[in-house]
Every structure is written in C-alpha cells, then in structure tokens.
Design a binder for these strands. Structure first.
Length: 482
RNA sequence: GGCGACGUCGCCAAGUGGUAAGGCAGGAGUCUGCAAAACUCCCAUCACCGGUUCGAUCCCGGUCGUCGCCUCCA
C-alpha cells in the first residue's frame, strides 16, 4: 500500500505522489514570534514533525520550510504585534523577535521536534515580497492606493475562497471589520502597508516607506525555496481562512499553477473546550508543560488523536498519556536490560513473525493519512507481546532482542519521537549513578537472602523517595528512574 | 447568518456495510517475602429520528448538541 493523505483542498483522501520521485517539498506556516510558544503550537508542529519524520522513514528526501513571522502581523487594532510588545518593554523590535525566535526553537528542541531545513524570516525577505506585490499589480490582480497601501483585488481572482468554501457575497454580508480607507472591496487584503513616521519596522518600496502584509510572506518564501508549485502545504486549520486562502490567491494568480498539491491542516487544540490562543489568555506554555510532564508524554498526548482532529487539553489526558508512555518504556527498558548479557544466537526467533506483523501494521496505519493514534495502538499491542515473551522465562537470543529493540528505535524513536535512544538522565554522571544504585541493589539482595525484609524494604523505600523504582524479577532486580 | 468539522465504554481515542483497536481508570486472578511491573479474564451495540440495504455505528436525509473559521491566533 502506498501513502494516502487527506487533501483539504479536494476534501478527499488521495494517493500521495510527489512532484519529483523520491522527494517531498513541504511548507508549514510558522509562528509569529512575539511571545512564548504554547502547547497549541506544540500540537501543530509535533504533528508535522511526525509527518516529516515518517516521510523520511519512508525513503523520501524532504525539504521542510517553516517560516518565522517577525513583521507585518497586525492586531485588529492595526498595531503590529511585535511593535506593541517592543513598545511595552522598551526594546528594539528585533530584540523581541530574537528573544522569541530562540525561545521557540528551544521549546521545539525540547519536544524533540526536528528543525525544518529552512526557517526563513519575513523581515529577511522584504525585497521578494515587494517584487511579488509589484508583479501582482502589473498582472492586474492588485492595486496601490494614494496612501501607499497595496491591496489584492479579490474580485480579480475568481477562485478566491476555494480552500475554505467561502464565497465573496457571503463575506460581504458578514464583514464586521472596519474597512480600511482605499480598499475597493472589504475582503481585499493588504500586500503592503504604508508606515506612519513613528513606525519602527519599515522599508522603502515603490509605494513609499512601509512594511509587508502578513499573508504575502508565505507566498513569497514558499515560492522562493520550493518553487511555484510544491507538494505539501501545512498549518493550523484556523488559518485556512483568510491566511491560507490569501496565500493561494497571491501565488496562483501570478504563476497560473497550483500553489501546493496537498493541503494538510491540523485541528486546533482547546482547553476545557475552548481554543487555546494567546489573545484569549488561556494558554499553557510549552515551557510550563515541560516542567510537569516528560516531553515524550506530551508528544504521545498529541499523537493520541489524529492530526486533523481537534484535541482538548486536560491534566487528566496528560497524566493518562504519561502512564501510557511509561508502559511502552517498561518494555523498551526490559529489552535493553536483557540485551546487556544476552546469549548469542537466534533463540526465540519465532518471535520474528510478531515483529514483522506489527511493523507492517504500523506502516499501514501511518500510510493511511499519518494515522499516528492507530500506529500507537499497534505499538501497544506489540508491547504486550514483548512483555509476555520477556517474562516467559524462555531464553531469548541477542538477534531477537536486537530486532525488538530496532522496532522501538525506528518506529517509536525515529518516526514518533517518543522512545529515546538512551534511558538516562541528562546532566548527571550516569555511570557513577548506575554503579551506586547497583551497589544498593546488591546490598538489598543480601538482606533479602537473610530474610531481613525490614532493611530490604527500607532500601527500596528510600530509593523510591529519590525517584529510583526497584522491581524484583526472577532473574534479579532492575530499576527505573522517575 | 455563511463556511467547515465533529458527536464511539467513566475519561482519552482509532476503526469498519456484516455486531467495535489501543491507552488511562475500575473489578477478579496469576506471579512476588511484601510490593512494583507484567500477564490473563471482565467492562460499549457507536447522540436521536427516518431512509437505502439481506444487513449500518460506518451510506443518504433530518433533529439536537459541541467545536473551529468568517476579526489576531498554530
């Protein structure tokens, strides 16, 4: 079976065929860097991270471009988000941009999100945006006003609204926005805005001093790095209208070609049933979430529902995800313990059938529009079988153990990013810590053999207080770090 | 009002025209010095009402409800 994806543009599941055999060009709308990222961002970017990872696992070469919006994204008051923040903190706008860009990558790194191949900034691509606006004017799709603003003329582009199913007539009726001076139609959107003298981020242009509109950066940068047509355009569903719609209009009006072949949009994250967003103030930052939960558990929580569905955040859901993750990791750890002094040879090779089966099921799930929740189910079923095997008392040879470990590393690690390569605490002397714990385990074993259970339980309890959990197995005692 | 989704076990969440994965929680066991972990067993007819069909949770229509977008948001 080949990869199928649900294309929001055509509203159906389609076979994925990249423009160039073996290569995928993907663009995902990135964040506006005026505040710390929240877990709503995490949902979108972890989702696309897994899509990126799975495409690579499937053998594709991927060029993944995700922009950083650092100019032009206005509040409904007309203020630039970044300028507003800069003014409030008496900082240069670019200090704000730098601070939150770093913060964003810090958070995504912590969540195990692989960095895009290119993270272009809007402010670094102003010439490209001006050029595109100019071309749109020349082609008759945009017009400049006396004030020095440039607007896209939505009526000149009959396909405007095709992604979201919006019709211009309906928009007119529902328009609550104050119509800017000089617009021919309320739905016309800005490609370029003139800057007032006190405005800090501004550039020269054929229409005077100003700054680019929000939507045009994505069209300009996606086209620059991926070409006039590329394979996948991603982002959050809430940006479908007007942002994605405007991107399409700008790019396709100029090129006459499809902007992107497949539109993959993620469902929003809600908190107590309400969308988490900066403007509502009900957001939980990634930095806060990581203080309480393992990054892998946060990933598992996000991957527990399909990327295109909305997901409701709750403490209970996170706890449940973390427990589920611990169950998986129990088997991973058991496998790696067994591997330490595994007998050579292919004992237990009958298990290879189960390995192949589950690997196949996992691939089938992911091939079906990146169905991570189902793939996780496969991994959990696999885990039950692994636990049964490793607790059976039968000899399991190195070959089989390595094959099991490979499943966890490749599917759980490389693809889903929830199984770390090494189970150890960062920043501590792992070897010394391990030695000390082993010493205590030996002392406790001695106490147990003398039936001194008071002492053996004391050792276990005191270690548990330190976050070291001991588990007695027929073949000895193992430990887990909490 | 318009556009787009969704409504599956206590919670989260996959899925299929032929009586429904998985995780969490819960109950009963096995194992254990006791635990923990693990394993076994138990735990849902899929919002409601019509229709199509031999048969629908999955297809169509309607009702109710929830959410997103239409205004900044990933």
């Amino acid at each position: 079976m080949t990869l199928q994806v649900f294309n929001r543009m055509t509203r159906q599941k389609e076979e994925f065929k990249p423009l160039t055999e073996g290569q995928v060009k993907m663009y995902v709308c990135g964040p506006t860097v005026y505040d710390h990222a929240h877990i709503g961002h995490a949902k979108t970017y972890v989702s696309f991270d897994v899509i990126n990872r799975y495409l690579r696992y499937s053998g594709y070469r991927v060029r993944y471009v995700q922009n950083i919006t650092d100019v032009g994204h206005l509040l409904d008051t007309g203020e630039d988000r970044i300028l507003k923040k800069a003014g409030a903190l008496s900082l240069e706008p670019m200090e704000i941009v730098e601070t939150y860009t770093r913060s964003y990558f810090e958070d995504m790194d912590a969540l195990g999100v692989r960095r895009p191949n290119i993270s272009p900034r809007a402010s670094g691509h102003v010439p490209e945006q001006i050029k595109m606006a100019q071309a749109l004017i020349e082609a008759g799709y945009a017009y400049a006003t006396d004030e020095g603003d440039v607007y896209f003329d939505v009526h000149s582009w009959p396909e405007y609204g095709k992604l979201s199913g919006q019709r211009l007539e309906e928009l007119e009726g529902g328009a609550r926005v104050e119509v800017a001076e000089g617009k021919r139609h309320p739905a016309d959107f800005a490609l370029w805005r003139h800057a007032e003298p006190e405005h800090l981020m501004k550039w020269d242009s054929p229409w005077g001093v100003g700054f680019p509109g929000w939507h045009i950066e994505c069209s300009a940068m996606a086209t620059k790095y991926l070409g006039e047509t590329f394979d996948i355009h991603g982002g959050g569903l809430e940006n479908r209208f007007p942002h994605n719609e405007c991107e399409i209009a700008q790019a396709e009006a100029l090129s006459g070609k499809p902007f992107a072949n497949y539109w993959l949009l993620t469902g929003s994250l809600t908190v107590d049933g309400v969308k988490m967003s900066k403007s509502l103030g009900n957001f939980i930052t990634v930095k806060d979430a990581i203080k309480t939960y393992r990054p892998e558990a946060i990933r598992l929580f996000i991957l527990s529902s399909h990327y295109s569905n909305p997901v409701d955040f709750s403490e209970a859901a996170l706890v449940s995800a973390q427990k589920g993750w611990e169950r998986l990791m129990g088997a991973v750890q058991l496998t790696r313990y067994a591997l330490r002094d595994a007998p050579e040879g292919d004992a237990g090779s009958g298990f290879q059938v189960a390995i192949d089966e589950h690997r196949q099921q996992f691939i089938e799930a992911m091939d079906d529009d990146f169905n991570a929740p189902q793939a996780l189910g496969v991994l959990q079923n696999f885990t039950r079988e692994v636990n049964t095997l490793l607790n059976s008392g039968e000899e399991v040879g190195r070959e089989t153990l390595e094959a099991i470990d490979a499943v966890y590393r490749e599917l759980g690690g490389d693809v889903l990013g929830i199984v770390p390569d090494e189970i150890s605490e960062a920043g501590v002397d792992a070897a010394r810590q391990d030695g000390l714990i082993q010493l205590l385990i030996e002392m406790r074993a001695q106490a147990r053999s003398e039936k001194n259970f008071a002492l053996s339980d004391l050792i276990r309890d005191r270690l548990a207080d330190l976050g070291v959990i001991l588990e007695d197995r027929p073949d000895g005692t193992v430990y887990k770090l909490q």
